[in-house]
């Protein structure tokens, strides 16, 4: 029965229709719209490269949101991966209660994207919220986290780093897949813990580091909920992420053409970074060539 091409196509049909209707068509339409002026009322008018020209030469807000988004990703992606790998390494041991810790660390990832957590996060960083109360007890003056251009983005960074769980469980599974015999051999050769980590663990988990990195980058460039809720893009646009800018242009001011152009720039950015990563992967990602992993 599994040779039946007809059945195979029949079962995959929903996906073909869905991908055409909800992905490929909108994807192409978005590209086409980026060359138009389309205030939602009336038909879109073709204006050539005007949207892109305006963006590059005449839109400080675009540059601001681009800077905010990129610097956010540059901080959050390594921070998240480092914390995730560190915790996974600590958990990778014959521990009692490993399941409890793993679940506890994964919890923020599950809840973190919700509006409720953003609301609660806002309270933690209020002028008199928990964070400043703690700083006060150790003798540090309260920091105006949400009201200051300099610190606001750090509340979002903290929230995002807090959600390292997804990367952590993937790292942990990869660490558990590194054959014990390699460590035993390294031990006999007198390798220190750090040397073992550097020369045995790291090379073997590079495929997973690569995977996590790509996923986190795609994720971080689209950050929306937290800055929209916690800091509302401010103060002084210091947390005005690209995703918020696109949302505002599209659904607040109904500049569908300009919003499409902005989202294509964001898309292009993500694709180029992913492309560079894929290209560089042949120099640093190590595939051992064996598919199955030891249990």
């Amino acid at each position: 029965m599994y040779e039946s091409k007809r059945l195979g196509y029949l079962f995959v049909l929903p996906f073909i229709l869905g991908i055409l209707a909800f992905n490929l068509f909108p994807f192409a339409a978005s590209f086409a719209l980026s060359f138009t002026d389309y205030p939602l009322i009336g038909a879109p008018t073709y204006i050539g490269l005007e949207n892109y020209e305006k963006m590059v030469f005449d839109d400080d807000l675009f540059w601001k949101s681009l800077t905010v988004t990129v610097s956010f990703a540059v901080i959050v992606v390594p921070a998240r991966l480092a914390v995730a790998l560190f915790i996974a390494q600590v958990l990778n041991f014959k521990l009692r209660g490993i399941n409890f810790f793993r679940a506890a660390y994964y919890l923020p990832t599950i809840l973190g994207g919700s509006i409720a957590i953003s609301v609660l996060w806002k309270f933690l960083f209020q002028q008199k919220g928990l964070v400043n109360i703690i700083l006060d007890t150790v003798g540090i003056d309260p920091i105006p986290w949400l009201a200051s251009e300099r610190y606001a983005v750090w509340t979002i960074v903290a929230l995002n780093t807090w959600q390292f769980g997804a990367a952590m469980v993937i790292f942990l599974a990869a660490l558990q897949g590194v054959p014990k015999s390699l460590y035993e051999a390294a031990e006999i050769d007198g390798a220190s813990f750090w040397q073992q980590f550097r020369n045995v663990t790291l090379p073997l988990i590079t495929p997973v580091i690569f995977f996590n990195m790509v996923m986190q980058i795609v994720n971080c460039f689209q950050e929306f909920n937290a800055p929209y809720m916690i800091t509302e893009g401010g103060p002084l646009y210091s947390t005005y992420f690209m995703a918020i800018y696109i949302y505002d242009e599209a659904f607040k001011y109904f500049n569908m053409g300009y919003a499409s152009a902005l989202s294509w720039v964001l898309f292009f950015l993500i694709v180029s970074i992913a492309g560079v990563l894929f290209w560089s992967s042949k120099y640093w990602v190590f595939y051992s060539g064996e598919k199955e992993r030891a249990r």
């Binding site: 209707a21 909800f22 992905n23 068509f25 909108p26 994807f27 339409a29 978005s30 719209l33 790509v214 795609v218 460039f221 689209q222 929306f224 995703a243 696109i246 949302y247 599209a250 659904f251 569908m256 919003a259 499409s260 989202s263 294509w264 964001l266 898309f267 993500i270 694709v271 992913a274």
Partner: peptide
Amino acid sequence: LLPPIVLRVPQYLM
């Protein structure tokens, strides 16, 4: 890898 944000505007129009 396709960011949903690129699709928002046309999907909305659709």
